[in-house]
């Protein structure tokens, strides 16, 4: 075999630099692509200035509202007394008559069409890309329960009043009211009437303000049909809505 012509140093360095340039381009390109995929409205500080506040009857109506508005790639700040634990495996289809050609569909569409309800609305929002992460502000009992369950999870970080827990790579934080934090971007705020089992509307507004939460859409949910929600809690939701409208005053 004849010896090939030697490769010049300049060519090797040039190729190496080209690879570095491509790598940097991929990093910047993906970052910008991700940012461009987020869809939001005009944000305002929650409890400070009026945001787009809507009152809806059910959690699934909240999901439909988000979808109609076209929100995508967002942080959902969920405030409620409890957290509905679901097993996503139950939504799968294992058809014993399965054969080629295989049926093909998006899991998100399948779950939305067949299983959307008050328990699954956040899961569907995650599947459909409305939410890219969730911060759930829970009452003390629900938080403690979540903490016990999280101890057996594979990817979890437990802090004082905070739990970071992923589901198939989807990031979720569970926090107590005292540990409520703003994620550094406008959120889709969801406040259920049950949130006022443990706190008053004024306290929640104060916590949102203190954390510096900004939102472009606040959904206040009566959770109609949920027997655990009382008329008093729905009344508190009225008061919370008034406070938000008045900018927290």
């Amino acid at each position: 075999m004849s010896d090939p012509a030697p490769v010049s140093n300049a060519r090797l360095v040039g190729l190496g630099l080209l690879i570095c340039l491509v790598a940097a381009g991929v990093c910047v390109g993906l970052d910008r692509y991700g940012a461009s995929c987020r869809k939001s409205g005009v944000a305002a500080a929650a409890g400070v200035a009026p945001a787009s506040v809507v009152r809806l009857a059910t959690p699934e109506a909240a999901y439909r509202f988000w979808r109609e508005r076209g929100y995508h790639g967002r942080t959902v700040l969920y405030v409620a007394s409890g957290w509905e634990r679901i097993d996503p495996n139950q939504f799968g289809q294992d058809d014993p008559r399965r054969n080629y050609p295989l049926s093909v569909y998006r899991t998100a569409d399948h779950v939305e069409k067949n299983f959307l309800d008050r328990r699954t609305f956040l899961y569907v929002a995650a599947l459909q890309g409305v939410a890219r992460r969730v911060i759930a502000v829970l009452g003390p009992a629900a938080f403690q329960e979540a903490r016990e369950q999280a101890k057996n999870a594979k990817n979890v970080r437990l802090g004082d009043g905070t739990i970071y827990l992923t589901y198939q790579g989807f990031p979720r934080w569970f926090v107590t009211g005292e540990r409520l934090f703003a994620p550094g971007e406008p959120v889709l705020l969801y406040v259920a009437a049950s949130a006022f089992k443990e706190s008053t509307p004024a306290e929640l507004v104060a916590r949102l303000k203190r954390a510096g939460v900004k939102t472009d859409a606040a959904v206040l949910c009566d959770d109609t049909g949920n027997p655990e929600v009382t008329a008093g809690e729905r009344g508190a939701l009225d008061e919370f809505a008034r406070l938000l409208e008045r900018g927290g005053r």
């Binding site: 190729l15 190496g16 630099l17 690879i19 570095c20 491509v22 790598a23 991929v26 990093c27 993906l30 970052d31 692509y33 991700g34 940012a35 995929c37 987020r38 995508h72 790639g73 967002r74 890309g129 890219r132």
Partner: peptide, 25 residues
């Protein structure tokens, strides 16, 4: 660059559909 940066870049690039969910780097 060829055996370090290039494979990692290809690996990262294979996640591009995940970024459409609004995630940043």
């Amino acid at each position: 660059a060829a055996l370090g940066i290039l494979p990692v870049t290809i690996y990262l690039a294979s996640f591009y559909p995940w970024f459409q969910r609004g995630y940043r780097l």
